[in-house]
């Protein structure tokens, strides 16, 4: 086990390097980077202040200075090395759009993403596991069939379509919930109790959309795994020696049914942080996903690379965490 983990950990650096280098190269070849953007902006401001745009064209020297500032004057491999060296010192650079440090920008969005990530994970686990168990025990009852068809719809639809449906029906048409945003504009002026209410009202729809997809997968996984185990001989043996059905399910079958769920657990880490920018865009939530989307649109590459560093590390460690979880719940697994 330790050896396996060590091997997996050793594989992280090459994957991480390959990944960041790839995106770094792509960002280098895209026109409309920060330098060109700055030139365009200067020409625009010149034009609006009545000057002839062509006249105040930046001279060669200034462009060279800008290029040097962003590291565009060096070969890719060298500027990648410089960037990587800074990352190892914990410096993600400064946003080319706002000038603020990338780490600060990302840090300001994190609480929002973590709020949604953790809540949706808790909801998924606390509802799906009991629901799955109940459905397995009451297989093909009215409740099982009804809940299956509901869960199935959530499974068939991508979360952004669920988000659009929820927004149109509950926010726009029925006006039960606000249309979007993380909190209302007057959040600061509200009393503590109203703040909680406001936050929850804004969170209901996005959370439902977040949960809808994983909900179905989890519930069905739990149900199917439990049903497989209920049919296994060891459950029959357990009952033959006098255990009640309840004890047999909870102490024997349930534990073994957690194995397939454990393979999924590590994914939660990256979902917690990265979220889904489609949902964030639809509900206009200023989270991590929307930040990534906007910074790509604005060609704010330091931010893009910073997000990539964090999200890819989370993903890589999340995969390993999944393996550990599997090993914990299933001692038979030998790596």
């Amino acid at each position: 086990m330790a050896q396996y983990l060590l091997r997996r950990l050793l594989l992280i650096p090459p994957t991480f390097l390959g990944l960041t280098f790839l995106v770094f190269v792509i960002t280098r070849f895209v026109p409309g980077g920060p330098v060109e953007r700055m030139i365009a902006e200067m020409q625009e401001s010149a034009a609006s202040s009545g000057q002839d745009a062509a006249q105040i064209d930046l001279d060669e020297e200034q462009i060279a200075q800008l290029n040097e500032y962003y590291g565009f004057d060096k070969p890719i491999i060298i500027s990648y090395g410089i960037w990587l060296g800074r990352v190892f010192q914990g410096d993600l650079g400064a946003s080319s759009r706002y000038g603020d440090p990338v780490a600060e920008i990302i840090g300001s969005r994190l609480p929002i993403s973590i709020f949604y990530g953790v809540t949706s994970m808790l909801i998924t686990y606390f509802i799906c596991l009991p629901l799955g168990i109940f459905k397995a025990i009451k297989h093909q009852s009215v409740f099982d069939n009804l809940s299956s068809s509901l869960v199935f719809i959530g499974y068939a639809l991508p979360s952004y379509v669920v988000a659009v449906i929820l927004m149109v029906v509950f926010a726009s048409h029925l006006e039960w919930f606000p249309l979007g945003g993380f909190v209302s504009d007057d959040f600061e002026d509200l009393s503590r109790w109203e703040q909680v209410k406001d936050l929850l009202a804004h969170a209901v729809l996005p959370l439902t959309a977040y949960v809808s997809g994983s909900f179905a997968v989890m519930t069905f996984m739990m149900k199917n795994a439990l049903m497989d185990n209920l049919a296994a001989d060891y459950v029959r043996t357990a009952m033959a020696k006098g255990l009640s059905f309840r004890q047999a399910v909870l102490n024997h079958a349930f534990k073994n049914s957690l194995i397939p769920l454990a393979t999924h657990f590590g994914n939660n880490i990256s979902i917690i942080i990265a979220g889904s920018f489609l949902i964030e865009k639809i509900f206009n939530i200023d989270g991590f996903g929307l930040l990534g989307y906007e910074s790509i649109l604005e060609r704010d590459y330091p931010v893009v690379m910073g997000i990539l560093v964090i999200s890819s590390l989370l993903q890589l460690f999340g995969n390993i965490l999944s393996d550990i979880c599997v090993a914990v719940v299933d001692p038979r697994v030998q790596f």
Partner: peptide, 19 residues
């Protein structure tokens, strides 16, 4: 494949389509 499947797909598509 491990490197490739970790590349954020939508990022690259968006970057490409904006060129």
């Amino acid at each position: 494949i491990e490197v490739w499947s970790n590349v954020p797909f939508l990022y690259v598509v968006i970057i490409m389509s904006s060129i």
